[in-house]
C-alpha cells in the first residue's frame, strides 16, 4: 500500500534577537553570534514575505548592505546566496561570512549608520501543523496542491531542504520513494523559489503533474 502524503503548513512568529548591527563589522560579528533561526528568518523567510517581488534583493542582509551601507558590490554578492542551494543553515551562515570577510578585512574604519537605520536581528519561532489534506496518488496530489496555502508550499519546498539535510524537497521525496515517479520528482526539484514566487511554483508543479497524468 502506498504511503499517504500528509500536507503540513508552517506558521512563523518573529522574536527580536536582542542584537543590532550598525556597520559592516557589527553585521559580521552579529552573523557569527545569532542563532540559526535568525539566519533562517533573514534568508529563507524573506522569500515568503516578499515571494512575489522576484526582481528585488530577496534576503534582508543584501537589502540592508545595499540601502544603508552603500556597498553595492557586497550587496550583490550577498543577494546571490540562494538559500535553496544549501542544505543547512550553518552552510548559509558560512557562505555569508565568506563574502563579508574580505570587506571587513580591508577596511580600516567602519562607517556607522544612525540608530534608526541599524540592522535588527530577528529570530523565528516556527510551527509546522497538519492541514488535514492527504494525497495517495498523482490526481489527489494535484488536487491538494490546488488547495494549500503558501505556508504549506514553504514548508514542503523550502524548509524541507534543511529538515532533510539534502538537496531535495518533501514532494520529490514522496513522488520518488512512494510513487516511483523519479523523473517528475527530479523536475520538481529543479524548480527554484529564487526564480519563481510560491504561487508560480505551485502552478509549475501542477503543470508538471498534469503533463505526467496526460
Amino acid at each position: 500500500m502506498v504511503e499517504q502524503f500528509l500536507f503540513y503548513s508552517e506558521a512563523h512568529i518573529a522574536v527580536w534577537a536582542g542584537l543590532t548591527a550598525s556597520n559592516l563589522y557589527s553585521l559580521w560579528t552579529g552573523l557569527q553570534k545569532v542563532s540559526g533561526s535568525a539566519i533562517f528568518y533573514h534568508m529563507h523567510h524573506s522569500l515568503l514575505r516578499r515571494h512575489f517581488t522576484t526582481s528585488d534583493y530577496m534576503n534582508d542582509f543584501a537589502r540592508w548592505v545595499w540601502t544603508y551601507l552603500n556597498q553595492p558590490a557586497l550587496a550583490e554578492k550577498l543577494a546571490s546566496v540562494d538559500p535553496w542551494e544549501f542544505t543547512s543553515v550553518r552552510d548559509v551562515r558560512e557562505k555569508l561570512l565568506a563574502y563579508l570577510e574580505p570587506y571587513v578585512g580591508e577596511m580600516e574604519t567602519f562607517m556607522r549608520v544612525p540608530e534608526r537605520d541599524e540592522f535588527q536581528f530577528i529570530e523565528l519561532r516556527s510551527l509546522a501543523f497538519p492541514t488535514g489534506l492527504t494525497a495517495i496518488d498523482l490526481p489527489s496530489f494535484r488536487d491538494c496542491l490546488r488547495q494549500v496555502g503558501h505556508g504549506s508550499l514553504f514548508y514542503h519546498l523550502i524548509e524541507a531542504r534543511l529538515r532533510l539535510g539534502r538537496r531535495s524537497n518533501d514532494f520529490s521525496e514522496w513522488l520518488s520513494d512512494c510513487l516511483k515517479e523519479d523523473a517528475l520528482a527530479e523536475r520538481i526539484n529543479n524548480l527554484s523559489p529564487y526564480a519563481y514566487n510560491l504561487w508560480q511554483l505551485r502552478s509549475k508543479i501542477i503543470e508538471l503533474v498534469e503533463a505526467r497524468l496526460s
Partner: peptide, 16 residues
C-alpha cells in the same frame, strides 16, 4: 502562534 509560544516556549521549528 504567540499564545502557543508563550504557553510552552520553543526554539526554531516545532511540529504539532
Amino acid at each position: 502562534l504567540l499564545l502557543l509560544a508563550v504557553r510552552k516556549p520553543w526554539k526554531g521549528l516545532m511540529h504539532w
